[in-house]
Amino acid sequence: MSLEMRNSCEKCTEELNNNSTAYICIHECTFCYECTENMNYVCPNCGGELVRRPRSGVGR
């Protein structure tokens, strides 16, 4: 099972690509760094912890 790599922040709609620093919760809610920091690393949808999303290894 792989992560769904969403391409925008759910809060501010900032575009995120595979190499962007983004944060996800266990349900794969996705947020940019700035929104995550402002939300104190807590998902507003489920109350779970937001952790850094892994980056793609493609193109390195």
Rank of each mutant, 00 (worst) to 15 (best):
M1Y: 05
E10Y: 02
Y23C: 02
C32I: 02
Y33H: 15
V58W: 01
P44C: 15
E37R: 11
S56I: 08
E49W: 12
C9S: 02
P54A: 03
I26R: 04
I24E: 03
G57Y: 05
S8H: 14
M5W: 14
P44H: 15
F31V: 04
E49R: 15
C35L: 05
S20C: 11
N45E: 12
R53I: 00
N19V: 11
S2T: 13
G57H: 11
C43T: 00
S8K: 14
T21A: 04
P54L: 09
S2H: 10
T30M: 05
C12D: 14
R52G: 01
T36S: 12
L3W: 08
C12Y: 09
V58F: 02
E15K: 14
H27I: 00
E34P: 05
T21V: 15
E10C: 05
R55N: 09
N40S: 13
G47F: 03
E10A: 10
G59C: 06
S8N: 12
M1G: 09
V42W: 03
Y33G: 03
N7Q: 10
L16E: 04
G57L: 08
R6N: 13
Y33P: 00
R52S: 11
R52N: 09
M5L: 12
V58P: 00
E14D: 11
S2I: 12
M1C: 09
P54I: 03
C32W: 01
N17Y: 12
M5N: 08
E15C: 07
G47H: 06
K11E: 06
G47A: 08
Y23F: 14
E10H: 05
K11S: 11
R53N: 01
Y41E: 06
C46T: 15
S2F: 11
T13Q: 15
Y23W: 13
T13F: 10
T13S: 13
G59K: 07
C25R: 07
G59L: 14
K11V: 07
S8P: 00
Y23L: 06
T36E: 06
V42H: 02
E4G: 02
C43K: 01
M39K: 02
R52F: 04
P54C: 11
N18Y: 06
E4H: 11
R6H: 13
E14L: 10
G47V: 01
P44G: 15
T13K: 15
Y23A: 08
R55Q: 12
N17E: 06
E37Y: 09
R55F: 06
Y33F: 13
S8R: 11
G59H: 08
N18H: 08
T36L: 07
A22K: 12
M5A: 08
C12L: 13
S20R: 09
R52V: 12
T13Y: 10
A22G: 13
T36F: 13
E37F: 07
N17H: 13
M39A: 08
V42C: 05
V51A: 12
G48I: 10
N7I: 04
R53F: 00
R55Y: 01
G47L: 09
E15T: 04
S56V: 07
M1R: 14
P44Y: 12
E34Y: 08
S2V: 09
H27P: 00
G59S: 12
I24V: 15
I24S: 03
M39Q: 05
G57Q: 07
I26G: 08
H27Y: 05
N38V: 06
E14M: 07
T30I: 06
G47Y: 04
N19P: 00
Y41N: 10
P44M: 15
